[in-house]
């Protein structure tokens, strides 16, 4: 469990806090979405989870280990992997396989074990045939997959994805999203930051941030159902939810906690079959 207790953080000591008294917990195996306007502190928050930043006030612990505790940092960073927003700057190896070997090498694992983890991770993200390629010859989507493989090779318990679909075309996006879901099914907790609400309609929980605070939290249905509040924060909501909401604005008596096209289909069919439903 990642436990964030009353955390406040400032980048410069006189200025506005980037995080303001944040409280939250993330359980093993959970899938949690974090949304919020640009600059609201999402990246800052998740960098506290693997001891890249330390709270100015309050505390963060991972499976009972405090991130302030120097002797735990190595293990915390193994357990909590992070896929950064720009994969180009995360890849440090001269070839794909060497990059994936970077993390396990830092754990000082013996070479045969590193080899095994590299091969496993490459297979998991579907890049088996690209082991020897040089990073600059890869497409944006492939770079992202390499950085995910690099994290998987650490055998983490939690993986943070910081806007993992930015700069990707739709097919690259779908590939990453289904990979994230697959990873979650294998029991690894996912912390998924995004601007695209459609990506997290299947998350277990959604956290909405604004100006360094958590302003809303709950299941996707609960959160996206609060359309007015989301709109006030200038946040998008899933397209289907928006449609339902607009219909309701025009006097149609319709549920507004519809998140996916499938649900919308069912609702519409329902109404077509029984026009007197409302």
């Amino acid at each position: 469990m990642i436990k964030v207790e009353n955390v406040t953080f400032r980048y410069d000591h006189s200025g506005e806090p980037a995080l303001n008294r944040i409280n939250m917990t993330i359980d093993k195996g959970e899938y949690i979405g974090i949304v919020g306007p640009n600059g609201c502190g999402k990246t800052t928050l998740v960098q506290h989870f693997n001891a890249l930043l330390y709270p100015e006030d309050g505390r963060v612990s991972v499976d009972g280990m405090n991130t302030d505790d120097e002797s735990c940092v190595e293990e915390i960073r193994r357990r909590v992997g992070m896929v950064f927003q720009n994969p180009d700057n995360q890849i440090v190896g001269m070839t794909v396989e060497e990059d994936i070997a970077f993390g396990p090498g830092n754990l000082e694992l013996p070479s045969p074990e590193i080899r095994q983890r590299v091969d496993e991770s490459l297979a998991r993200v579907g890049l088996k045939n690209h082991a020897e390629r040089q990073p600059y010859t890869l497409s944006g989507g492939e770079k992202r997959l390499v950085s995910i493989a690099g994290v998987l090779a650490m055998k983490p318990e939690y993986i943070i994805f910081d806007e993992p679909t930015s700069y990707l075309d739709p097919s690259g996006r779908d590939r990453i999203l289904s990979l994230i879901e697959e990873i979650n099914k294998q029991g690894i907790a996912i912390i998924h930051i995004t601007h695209n609400m459609d990506e997290i309609v299947n998350a277990g929980r959604v956290v909405v941030m604004d100006e360094g605070r958590v302003v809303l939290t709950g299941s996707p249905k609960e959160v996206f159902g609060k359309v007015e509040q989301m709109k006030a924060l200038k946040l998008d909501i899933p397209v289907v939810t928006d449609l339902a909401w607009r219909l309701k604005q025009r006097g149609e008596d319709i549920r507004t906690d519809i998140l996916t096209i499938d649900e919308a289909c069912l609702e519409i069919l329902d109404r077509l079959k029984s026009p007197h439903a409302s």
Binding site: F84, N106, E108
Partner: peptide, 25 residues
């Protein structure tokens, strides 16, 4: 900017100065 981001990413992947192992010996 790139160097700073890379340094953070390396730290996040468990890099510390001193001994480490490699894929190939």
């Amino acid at each position: 900017r790139r160097a700073e981001e890379t340094a953070t990413a390396m730290e996040g992947r468990g890099y510390k100065r001193g001994p480490r192992t490699c894929l190939r010996n």
